[in-house]
């Protein structure tokens, strides 16, 4: 039962941080989870810095970085 709660807490924390993301970027926030997608099964994979690289659901060893949520703006030429 205890494992369940910690997992839930993690998720909550992650949601909070992604909401707070655009406002500012403080130091402690940088250690938070970033979501990638698995190169094989396309499942979302949340990783913290220093964690082993593998998909949590299929064990694949290549993860793709997702397209940035930020607005991307280029100068028209």
């Amino acid at each position: 039962m205890s494992t369940y709660t910690t997992a839930g807490a993690q998720q909550q924390q992650q949601q909070q941080s992604s909401m707070a993301h655009d406002a500012s970027s403080s130091t402690d926030e940088r250690a938070r989870f970033v979501e990638y997608s698995c190169g094989d099964c396309d499942a979302p994979v949340s990783l913290k810095r220093g964690e082993p690289i593998r998909c949590r659901s299929c064990g694949h060893r290549v993860l793709y970085k997702k397209r940035t949520h930020r607005m991307v703006q280029f100068e028209a030429r």
Partner: peptide, 10 residues
């Protein structure tokens, strides 16, 4: 594209 590469052992 940005690929984050793990090792064989995972």
């Amino acid at each position: 594209e940005v690929r984050i590469l793990g090792s064989e052992t995972g």
